[in-house]
Design a protein around this nucleic acid. Structure first.
Lengths: 226, 226, 226, 226
DNA sequence: TATGAATGAGGATTCATTCAT
DNA sequence: AATGAATGAATCCTCATTCAT
């Protein structure tokens, strides 16, 4: 048995317990390998109750994806200060992203790994979430280009590709940070910010990005002080 | 039935047929959803023969991962001209990467999506391959830093993070390029090269990377001439 | 939800509502396919209340069979005028039978189809009802034979067989009449009466039965004037 | 375990064994109450083999219905001598019908009871079979009417109803004969033939049908000499 | 009188895997 | 070199039924 049994609770509460268990199980085992038995057990309820409330394995998984997607997007949005300049907004979003994924590894696994791997309708659900994030980043880049008085601005497809690249880099670093002991969310964010803003070429020439204010001639790239 | 039946062929050939079928099936359906029945059928042989040659579903999947990993790494290695300067070497590797993944979508799906999603021992296998690529990139960056007379060079962990970010960006762009009609491997490579070398900040200031030679003051970022 | 909710009603009323819902559900879905959930829902009450009043699915089904059996038998009995001659009594019973089954298709399905198909103890319950009807018919035939001064009368087993045949024919025609658009209960009864009284041979020779009075040399068989 | 295990037999044989077991189980328990476990067990094979060969419970049931329907129809057809006069042809069909149903009670239960009770697509399958029989009988009656120089012949719908009634009477008598000890198929056929050909009215007047030749003034109705 | 919360038990179906030839 | 025949072990899901209020 998974959780301590405390019987007779209102539906809403039980549902959250079940989804917690489901996110954990799906995140660790994968969609197919996770069995409804295990989820019910971990949630401390019987299988029929899971079906009564969440309908089917598919629906349960979809519900998990949606819940975790909402949570992640809200976290990232909450990390972006609207009045900051473009680079600071990006920096805020990245920190929120790395913090959230570090604190919700199973939820992140569900979104990033499982949902995208197990075909429709899950992939579509995860893709929608990712598209929101990419759109957010795309807009950030576009605004930054405008703020930089860059004219003519970058072509749309170029910007889309850059946003894709940035998001992919973030996803990759999230896994790296979680797997590498001692790497904090802040440090991961700093590494990515350097990379994304100054580029390798810039870093080679000592042109790192600093949270203090835009691209600087600082002698060394920003590292998070752990 | 999948393939035309031509009985009695040497083992090595049959094995490749089976693995072709397996890669295709695993890549499209996923590890668990793929059934040995379907694979055998697609390979045009009976199930017992698959077991005779490949032993088990797990072994078969592992064999697929290894084969595809080898192929990808060799492709990337083959794209890097040892005598080029650092940025050109990176550029060559990226082009090879995008070309290979575009031409082997199922193999790439097996490596990038399925192997990493379905737990041990597959994740380890895929991780080893990825580590090789990251190591390659890491070394590229380190050499570049040295070539740039940058002293003291970037801290190791910083470099590791940058390599992770770069590889993640590449993975993300591979999916984007494959999903976006009209985006060639070359264009994807160019977008990433701009991003990675010049950074967003550099691009804002018009400092794009060009295949012609290092970081330049080119008025517009490189786009692949399709 | 099935019915409009109006809480707190006397037990007897609620019970009838539940049985109405049950007959409908059992009749349409069958005993096993009918779920207590659906019945409760259709009755507009919660499942525990169904159990409180009707005890179990088995008991509920049995109660339905009994209620519908009573109703059918009373209908048939009510259609038989005791002072009529034998053929007229039969005619009256048949008309009542066809009318009742046409008006209670679900109840008839429960009795004729479901109860007999789902083993003990239901089959016994339905058999008892049927036996009552067969007995009624048997007696009618026996009396008719006596009235016809037939001596020695038909052997008992012969009569039993004839009654079985007649009832079976009626059951079959009930389904036919309900399924064939435009066939009224009266017409079904007329067809059967012709068949049962005059026989095919009689009909071939133009010896049809007419409600007017016994076996006649009428040129054409009786058809119900719709 | 049901049957003695004799392993490794050709598919066609196994399939028949399975269908034998299925007919028996479906006939006795009913469609829903029959479990695939029980059927497999009775057939002496494992469940997966049943699924491998017969696909699903639904398909298995349908296959049973079809097989039994074919068998019954062929039996009845085989009992009708084409060169006999109409009444003799009917007599032959009835005898074949009662004989077949008496010898295949489970198959008959599947057709008459289970298939018609468990909704689509089974009911349609059984209905098709029954329609064939009814059509056969309908034609017999129509020809008889023509042979009797009856002009104008009976209206079509009248004939359809008569055929329905006759078939229903036969079905009912089949159950009665099987349930009443000592009633042979021949006797059941004789009882029905009397009823159908002479009618109750005819019987009252001593006008019974005899296999010897048409409607006669025989002093007593035909009884089968067991 | 009435119900929201909860479950034990069982059933259909699938799949990786092996045996005998 | 190759396969038709066969199965043990799970897994998803449903349902009649009860408990606590």
């Amino acid at each position: 048995m998974g959780a301590v049994k405390s019987k007779r609770m209102p539906r809403a509460v039980r549902e959250q317990q079940m989804m917690d268990a489901a996110v954990r199980t799906f995140g660790q085992r994968g969609y197919q390998a996770a069995s409804m038995d295990e989820i019910a057990d971990l949630a401390g309820v019987s299988k029929p109750l899971v079906y009564l409330y969440l309908n089917s394995k598919e629906d349960l998984f979809t519900a998990c994806i949606r819940r975790e997607a909402r949570a992640l997007i809200e976290a990232v949005r909450g990390g972006v200060r609207p009045d900051d300049p473009a680079d600071r907004r990006l920096w805020g979003g990245l920190r929120a992203f790395f913090t959230h994924t570090a604190q919700n590894p199973d939820g992140w696994a569900v979104l990033h790994r499982q949902a995208r791997t197990h075909g429709e309708p899950f992939a579509a659900e995860a893709a929608a979430m990712r598209k929101e994030i990419v759109a957010l980043v795309t807009q950030l880049i576009a605004v930054a280009a405008r703020e930089a008085h860059r004219d003519p601005s970058l072509p749309d497809r170029e910007v889309a590709g850059l946003a894709e690249a940035l998001v992919g880099a973030a996803e990759s670093l999230a896994a790296w940070a979680n797997a590498t002991p001692g790497v904090s969310a802040k440090e991961a964010a700093a590494t990515l910010m350097n990379f994304a803003w100054a580029g390798l070429g810039g870093l080679m020439e000592g042109r790192a990005w600093s949270p203090a204010g835009g691209s600087a001639q600082a002698p060394a790239p920003v590292s998070a002080s752990v």
